[in-house]
Amino acid sequence: MRAPISSAKDSVIVSKTTSRLLWIVLSMLLLGADLIWTPHAPVSHLPQIGIYMLITLTGTVVVLGVTLGLRRLLQRGEDYYAEH
């Protein structure tokens, strides 16, 4: 048995917010340009243009994407084990 998961309405929100989000982040990247200086980071030889933001953004989006994918695959109704 497969439990009901995210509705069609939810997925519309995703696409809208994601696009809005991309704009916000891009502007923040520009704002944070050249402000960052950390000697420790392996990225310190790169231009310091919001690199932390970029890493965080990409990483988090990937994790969220994987999660949403797994949700389809792995989620079951609450009484799953009771039934089996």
């Binding site: 439990a3 989620q75 079951r76 609450e78």
Partner: peptide
């Protein structure tokens, strides 16, 4: 809101 939990369990 997208990630608001549903009443379900996750297989492991």
């Amino acid at each position: 809101r997208v990630l608001y939990p549903s009443a379900s369990i996750t297989l492991d």
